[in-house]
Write a protein that binds this DNA or RNA. Structure first.
Lengths: 240, 240
DNA sequence: TCAAAAGTGTTACTTGTACACCCATGT
DNA sequence: ACATGGGTGTACAAGTAACACTTTTGA
C-alpha cells in the first residue's frame, strides 16, 4: 500500500424520485439492519459497493434493478461524495457487520433516478422499500441527507435542461394540472397555470386523449399523454 | 478484503481551460515521465491520488495549486470516470513505476477549472506544464481524451448556468469582441455581434473603461472590466 | 345557484433578431 | 479612398405575463 493515499472501497448511492397524489416529491428509502438492535428502524439510500468488473453507471443500474425489479431505469450521475468524515462511528460499525470487514472511509458516487410512483416495487435485495415525501425524510446514516439535499438542486437542473424527463414521474395518462403541480414542485418558480396550459397544449408531442376525469366536483379535465417519437423528431427546446 | 468488490485508489484529474490570443480554448497538460524511455514525450492531465485526510474538492484544489502556483482557483467537479478498462497495460506499467506499487484499476473524479492564459505558471510539482489548443491535444493515457471531450460539454453548461465565470478566462481589461469570441468558442451557437455588444454593454456590472485599443487598423475598441460586487448585488440571470 | 377548476381569448409588455447607418483608424 | 471593425438606432417578430371570460361538474 502506498502511504498517505486512500485505498478503499467505492460505492454508488441512488436517489430515486417519485411524485405522489398529494403533489409531493418522494424518495425511495430502504431499511438498514442492525443485527444487535433488531427493533431500531433505520433507513438509508439504496446503494452498493462497486464490483470488480463494473463501471459506476453499471453499478447504479444494478442497484436500481435490485431495488425495484425494473430492468432499465433512467439515471444520471450527479456527484461524488468523499468527505473524510462522511462515515460516522456508527456507520463504520454497521459496515463492519454488513461486510464482515473493517472499512473506515468510503467514497460514494451519487445518482439520480426517476420512477412512476404507482409502479409496483419488486425488490430482489431489500425486504423493505418505501416512499418518503422529501420533507418527511428521517435522519439517515453517512451523508445521505446531504446527498438528498443536493439531488433536489440537481433534479431541477435536469428538468431545465431536458424538460421531457418529467414524464418519467407522471402516469401515462395525466392532466395538465398534474403536470403543472409536478413542475411547480420541482422548479419552485411560479408560472400562471393558464399560460402553462396554453403552452403545453401547443406542443405537438403532447397528445390529447378522448378520456376525461370522472368524479371531480368541477369541470372534468382532459387526459393527455407524451409521445416520445414525435418529440424526438423535432426536439425543440421547451420551457427554458 | 471483501471478494468481488473493488478495493482501490481514487484520483482526481483536472481539465484547466485557458483562452488564447487566437481565440482558441486551450488546456493545460503536464509531462508524464517514463524512466526507461526518457525521450518519449508523453502528456497527461494533471492529477493525483487522494490522500487520507482529504476530500475530493481538497485534492483537486491541491492539484491545481501544485500545477500553477495559484492559491485559489475556481473549480467544479463534473464526473467520476470508473470504467474497468480505463487503465491500459501501458498505464498500469507506468503506475507500477510512478507509485512503486501495482494498481490495476483506478477510479478518477474529473474537475473543470479556468485560468487566465497570461498568468504565469509556477508549478511546484511538474517540470513541464504547457497549454494545448483543444484541437491539438495529443493522444493521452487512460481515458484523458474522453475526459477532455466531456469537459467541453460541461464548460458549455457551466457558462449557461453562470455566465460570469467566463470572466475567469479573460484578462481584467477586455474588449467586447474578445468576450464575444470567447463566448462563441464555448457556446458554439451563433449570436449577432452587434446585438451581443448592445446586450453586454447594457449590464451595469460591465464597466466601461477610459482606455481603448491601440495599433489596430480600424476604429479602436473600448476596454471593459467585470465588477463582481455590482453583479452580486443584483444577480439577474443573463444570457439564458 | 354556487364554488372550483377547465379551457379559450385578448392585450400589453419584454426580448430577440436582422440589419441599416455612421464613426474611427491604419494602410 | 477603402477596408475593417466599433458602436448606435430602428423596426419587426416572437415569446411572456396578466387577467377577463366562458364552460362544465358536483354539492
Amino acid at each position: 500500500m502506498i502511504p498517505n493515499f486512500i485505498h478503499t472501497y467505492v460505492s454508488v448511492d441512488c436517489v430515486v424520485f417519485g411524485f405522489d397524489n398529494e403533489n409531493r416529491l418522494n424518495i425511495l428509502l430502504v431499511q438498514r439492519h442492525f443485527e444487535d438492535i433488531p427493533n431500531e428502524q433505520h433507513r438509508k439510500l439504496p446503494g452498493s459497493l462497486i464490483m470488480n468488473n463494473e463501471g459506476v453507471d453499471d453499478a447504479a443500474q444494478r442497484v436500481l434493478t435490485e431495488l425495484t425489479g425494473i430492468k432499465k431505469m433512467v439515471l444520471k450521475q450527479f456527484k461524488c461524495f468523499a468527505d473524510p468524515g462522511r462515515a460516522s462511528e456508527k456507520d463504520v460499525k454497521w459496515m463492519d457487520k454488513e461486510y464482515n470487514h473493517h472499512i473506515d472511509r468510503i467514497i460514494t458516487v451519487a445518482y439520480l433516478s426517476l420512477c412512476k410512483i404507482d409502479r409496483k416495487i419488486n425488490s430482489s435485495k431489500y425486504e423493505t422499500v418505501d416512499w418518503f415525501p422529501v420533507d418527511k425524510v428521517p435522519d439517515l446514516p453517512f451523508d445521505h441527507n446531504q446527498i438528498i439535499q443536493e439531488s433536489l438542486i440537481e433534479i431541477r437542473k435536469w428538468i431545465e435542461s431536458d424538460f421531457t424527463i418529467i414524464f418519467e414521474l407522471l402516469p401515462k395518462k395525466f392532466t395538465i394540472r398534474q403536470l403543472y403541480q409536478l413542475y411547480s414542485a420541482i422548479s419552485e418558480k411560479y408560472i400562471d397555470i393558464k399560460n402553462f396550459h396554453k403552452k403545453i397544449s401547443s406542443f405537438n408531442y403532447i397528445i390529447q386523449l378522448d378520456e376525461i376525469e370522472t368524479n371531480v366536483s368541477h369541470r372534468a379535465a382532459r387526459y393527455y399523454s407524451f409521445d416520445q417519437k414525435i418529440y424526438k423528431k423535432n426536439n425543440t427546446k421547451l420551457i427554458k
